[in-house]
């Protein structure tokens, strides 16, 4: 497969998720303006931070006059899960130039990672797979900027399609279910899911990464039980 074909595949596989991402971007745009950010601040935050949930938390806290230290910590906590994404990408991307790694790290968000990691795992011998992540990441980036702009311009007149956001967890389901191929991967999902319910309910800031770490540990310890399901 040629580079541009892999890039195109990344773009096409990322496309369905945009039905869910777009309303999310609009909500952020509306909230950003309501929180008191200027048009330019609201818009450029989507390129400077480029992290949906953390941007929404940012503007919510800002509108409640939260101390800046708390805002920075919260954004860091919400995006801390990307550290794990990046760690899992090391074996596939560590031979690339620094400029490539910088660009791909910038684009490494939930939706791009979810789509591309499957490709990386299933075709780990292919040396140009980073074009897939480039395609999925750029697609998400463009969609996020346009939806932010739409939200900033629409203001309070929110359209009635916000339930479409449900496409995002459905896509993640479609991606992770085929990855459950053994007892240890099954236990990882169960434990991470239960831990998420508990930690989120306890209002722990780092609940995603904490739940994830529990899941990974259980997966590692139970790997000796593995026989293909």
């Amino acid at each position: 497969m040629k580079k541009w074909q892999i890039f195109k595949q990344g773009v096409l596989e990322e496309m369905p998720l945009q039905l869910g991402v777009f309303p999310f971007g609009i909500i952020y745009g509306v909230m950003a303006i309501e929180s008191g950010l200027t048009f330019l601040q609201a818009l450029l935050m989507s390129s400077i931070i480029f992290g949906g949930a953390s941007q929404i938390a940012f503007v919510q806290l800002l509108s409640n006059s939260t101390p800046f230290g708390v805002i920075v910590t919260t954004v860091g906590a919400i995006n801390s899960r990307h550290l794990l994404y990046s760690i899992s990408m090391v074996e596939y991307l560590n031979k690339l130039s620094v400029s490539w790694r910088v660009m791909l790290a910038y684009l490494l968000t939930d939706e791009a990672y979810a789509v591309s990691i499957r490709k990386f795992i299933n075709h780990s011998d292919n040396s140009i797979l980073h074009y897939h992540l480039l395609g999925s990441g750029i697609t998400l980036f463009v969609s996020w900027q346009i939806s932010t702009l739409s939200g900033v311009l629409i203001g309070n007149d929110l359209p009635e399609f916000l339930d479409l956001q449900f496409i995002i967890p459905l896509t993640f389901i479609a991606i992770i279910i085929p990855m459950i191929k053994s007892k240890s991967t099954f236990l990882t999902v169960i434990v991470a899911g239960i831990a998420a319910l508990v930690f989120k309910n306890l209002d722990i800031n780092f609940w995603i990464i904490l739940s994830g770490l529990f899941g990974i540990l259980v997966g590692m310890f139970s790997s000796r039980l593995d026989k293909k399901l």
Binding site: R81, L84, Y85, I87, S88, V90, E91, N94, D110, Y113, A114, I117, R118, I121, Q165, F166, I168, P169, F172, I173, I175, I176, M179, I180, S184, T185, T188, V189, A192, G193, A195, A196, L197, K200, W207, I208, I209, S211, G212, L213, F214, G215, I216, G219, M220, S223
Partner: peptide, 28 residues
Amino acid sequence: ISSDLPLFLKQSFKYIPLAVLTPIIVSD
């Protein structure tokens, strides 16, 4: 992060997508 990581650590990476995407699904 060196690419010569211990095997058990490398094997733990395969659990990352499942372990991080599941909490997001559950939350949604």
